[in-house]
Amino acid sequence: MSYGQPFWRIAQPQFSSQSAKEDLSQFLDTIVLVFNICVDRNVQLQLEEGKDRTKEQVSCDLKEFCMAEIFNNSRVYKYNLSRQIERLDFNNVVTQWGYMYVYMCRHIHLVYHVMSTALRQNRITVHSKMQTSICAIGAGPGSDVLGLLMFFREAGIRFPFSEINLLDRCVAWNDSWRSLIEKLPKDISGALGECNYHHFDFFNDELTDNLRRVINKATFVTFVKSVSPVSAWLRGKQFHYQHRNGQPPRGHWHSIYSILQCMQPGAIVLYIDNGSSQNTVHRKILMDSALLLGFQVLYEDNLTDFRMPCLFSKTCKEFIKYMNFRPCSVAGQNDTLLLWKPNRTY
């Protein structure tokens, strides 16, 4: 890769809203399928324990638990994170599934939309035979990876990833990710290859040697809906230092600075998070570090009530009716950025 030009060269694919709908529909159908498998497993476990319960009874209990977790997640995001009261715990597989059902396709589509829009506006370019190493920070169920896969598939790149690493405080997401990927069509799952989860907590300012190696190898690093949940804790860790004689700043900083610092020259950052302006705490946390390290802005936009295209299958419609709760397809304000790390570093 040449570091003289940001991103990759060649290709002007014709992006199709219809194909995006089809991919999103396939993802959502698979999430529904995984939940049904979860129900079957719980029925079997309860039968083995001698509990006299029907599949319908188990399914109803799981539904109620899942809905309670969905509303609890919403409560924590809206009220408690900003006051440093509570952090979400996704170690329970049904809690994970609830989050995936409501938010995953929405986040996949945001990634796809930002990338395809940036390409149409000639802010980035792609190479028809390129491969890239992805490192998703605060990756959760892997929405960032599937959104990028949608983008590259429409660009005509069948196997875009040389390596995929997902960093999250809850590595139990790995089980839900693998359950999802195993049930996706082969043309999608086969394009992903091996995906590795690594334990990472934004609160640990000093990265382990392994995490540094993983991040340093990546040509694409994503922060999708991952900074805002921890911004209340990180904002107090920012201290500004002056450069002296070209030497790097000294002193304590936070984990986002550490991540950006060890990225390789030529690498790209994709940032998507909540916000109606450039003045959100989480954007400032990212940009203070990025500007200090010499990153350049390739693309930025603010999406207002941007709608995800919906193409629900019959099975999915029946499931939505059963849950009496639709997946998120449009929500508020989303601040988006693509940053490039040039050859010059500090």
Rank of each mutant, 00 (worst) to 15 (best):
L337Y: 05
G140S: 04
E64M: 11
G332Q: 10
H252Y: 08
G156E: 14
V114T: 04
H127L: 07
F306T: 14
S226C: 02
S329Y: 15
S329P: 08
S228V: 10
R75I: 03
T280A: 05
M100S: 02
T219R: 02
L88T: 06
G193H: 06
S143T: 14
R87Q: 10
Y322P: 05
G246L: 03
H254K: 10
Q46D: 13
A136T: 00
V281I: 13
N92I: 11
E48G: 11
F312H: 13
S231D: 07
N302D: 10
K186T: 15
I320Y: 02
R212D: 10
H252E: 15
I157C: 03
D209T: 12
R9K: 13
V214H: 02
Q44D: 15
Q131W: 09
V94A: 07
P265F: 08
L303T: 04
S2E: 13
G98Q: 05
I85H: 04
L28R: 04
T132S: 13
A136C: 01
T132N: 14
Y299M: 06
M104Q: 10
P141T: 00
I108G: 01
V330F: 10
A172H: 08
V93D: 12
F325T: 11
R250H: 10
N216W: 07
I259F: 06
Q264H: 08
T95P: 00
C66L: 14
S176N: 04
S59P: 04
C170Q: 07
G147R: 01
L110F: 10
Q247V: 06
D61Q: 01
M67A: 07
S329L: 11
L33R: 06
F65Y: 12
N36Q: 14
F202M: 02
H243E: 15
H243I: 15
L148D: 03
T30E: 04
A155L: 02
I188C: 09
A11H: 13
N165G: 04
H254G: 09
D209K: 06
Q261N: 15
Y103C: 14
F159H: 12
Q26E: 15
F312Q: 05
N216F: 05
F203K: 11
E163C: 12
Y77R: 12
G275A: 08
R213V: 10
M308I: 07
R169W: 09
V330C: 10
F203Q: 13
L119C: 04
E49I: 02
C135G: 11
H107M: 14
D23L: 13
I272A: 00
N122Q: 09
L298N: 00
Q96R: 07
V171C: 04
M115C: 08
A20W: 05
L337E: 03
L338H: 02
I31H: 03
F27P: 02
Y322G: 10
I10E: 13
D209E: 08
V224F: 01
S176I: 01
T222K: 00
Q264A: 15
L88M: 09
R344W: 13
K225D: 14
S176C: 04
Y79M: 12
V214E: 03
